[in-house]
């Protein structure tokens, strides 16, 4: 396709592959960010449980991206990455012990801000993938994006809502 002297440009097909790979990575990151937030916030029960519930969405996305990746000659790990259980338990214990102090609230706001940014990145990645799939008339890929992207938006709105709910108490009364 291109001359031997010109720099190699990825084919359109490969670019889709890259987009899938990138999403596979960023969804793994998002799941990690959610699980990390959960472990840090054992004393904030709603965050602890909801973060775990919605991390499953990202983990499911990882699995489905790996599956569809096979059609694009990608070998992606269908198993979402996981932190070691030991580290996670340690964090939970620490968070329970610091639950009596208000300063961790500032850490919570920082963690939620981070989560929102990661989710926003994933959301944009899905936009890119959906637009590409649409342009290339890749129905399967478009369906995947249509299934998964709304859940990313819900993860993002959740982070936003948590900030909105807790910010005043942390900033004013803390």
């Amino acid at each position: 396709m291109s001359g031997s002297s010109a720099p190699r440009r990825p084919s359109r097909g490969t670019r889709i592959g890259m987009a899938i790979e990138e999403l596979h990575r960023s969804e793994n990151d998002l799941a990690g960010a959610l699980l990390n937030l959960s472990d840090q916030q054992k004393a904030n029960h709603e965050i602890f449980y909801v973060a775990r519930d919605v991390a499953r969405w990202s983990q499911e996305h990882v699995r489905r991206l790996a599956e569809i990746g096979r059609d694009h000659d990608l070998e992606l790990d269908p198993e979402p990455e996981d932190e070691t259980a030991l580290l996670s338990r340690l964090k939970q214990k620490t968070s329970e012990l610091t639950g009596r102090f208000h300063e961790p609230g500032l850490l919570l706001l920082a963690d939620l801000r981070h989560l929102h940014r990661v989710a926003a990145g994933v959301s944009l990645d899905w936009e890119v993938l959906a637009q590409t799939a649409q342009a290339m008339r890749d129905v399967e890929l478009l369906e995947l994006a249509e299934d998964c992207h709304p859940q990313t938006l819900r993860q993002m709105r959740w982070a936003n809502a948590q900030v909105k709910e807790t910010a005043a108490q942390i900033m004013v009364t803390g």
Binding site: N44, E46, G99, R100, F101, H102, P104, G105, Q169, T173
Partner: peptide, 13 residues
């Protein structure tokens, strides 16, 4: 209520 108790726990209430 559950969040109020959480705020009592963390000392902001």
């Amino acid at each position: 209520a559950m969040q109020i108790m959480r705020y009592v726990e963390d000392g902001s209430v």
